[in-house]
């Protein structure tokens, strides 16, 4: 009783359980045990051949914590295939899925930018709202340019307000005309008017 040293710790080296083969892990990703699926998804980090299986898992996975693990591993790939495979879920009716996918895409600065022309032109305005959410966090020099374009051109007020929210942390005095034009485009949107008015003093103060 009391403090005891780890049993079988006479040798200082770590006893790491042998890693299952990639084939085994790919099967485990589809196991009925969610914890096995979660661990397998995490273990498949940097395994390119696992991408198709993991991408297929994103849409069907019912356990949020397994889906998070799948997305953590996929996002690290940051390739066009992964980005395109994730972007289809931005239109999902399931809030947990579309927000989790948007979060993952926001950590993919190499591949997410190539999706922007299509996403900015998506017919579903809910997809464009999610796109503004991605751009809010995407560490990419063009993020601001795309947001300004959404604010200037998007026909849906909720997309424009989402883009304004994403833009403001990086906005400066030069962006004031675009913001004012947005207010003029949607004169009946009280939130948009309030937001721009609240932001103006800070923006013009930095001129």
């Amino acid at each position: 009783m009391g403090l005891v040293r780890k049993t079988a710790s006479t040798e200082p080296e770590e006893v790491v359980p042998p890693e299952p083969s990639v084939e085994t892990l790919l099967q485990q990703v589809q196991d009925t045990d969610p914890e096995l699926r979660r661990e397998a998804a995490l273990s498949l980090v940097e395994v390119a051949e696992a991408v198709p299986v993991l991408l297929a898992r994103v849409g069907v996975e019912t356990e949020a914590r397994v889906r998070d693990a799948v997305l953590t591993t996929l996002a690290a790939h940051d390739t066009a295939t992964v980005a395109a495979g994730l972007a289809v879920h931005l239109a999902s009716d399931e809030a947990g899925l579309r927000t989790a996918v948007a979060e993952a895409l926001a950590t993919m600065p190499r591949s997410a930018p190539d999706l922007m022309p299509d996403l900015l032109a998506a017919p579903d305005h809910d997809v464009r709202v999610m796109t503004a959410m991605i751009l809010a966090d995407l560490p990419h020099p063009d993020a601001k340019t795309w947001l300004l374009r959404m604010i200037a051109e998007d026909p849906h007020p909720n997309v424009v307000t989402g883009a304004i929210d994403a833009l403001l942390p990086a906005a400066d005095a030069g962006d004031v005309p675009v913001l004012q034009a947005a207010v003029a485009r949607f004169p009946d949107d009280p939130f948009l008017r309030f937001t721009v008015q609240a932001a103006l003093p800070r923006l013009t103060g930095t001129a």
């Binding site: 403090l3 040293r5 710790s9 006893v15 790491v16 359980p17 890693e19």
Partner: peptide, 22 residues
């Protein structure tokens, strides 16, 4: 010594999924 020997020390990168399985 009594306490030192009871504490097991490990070199570990918390982001390394394979190693963290220990």
């Amino acid at each position: 010594e009594g306490i030192r020997s009871a504490v097991t020390l490990h070199k570990m990168n918390i982001c390394d999924t394979a190693a963290m399985k220990a």
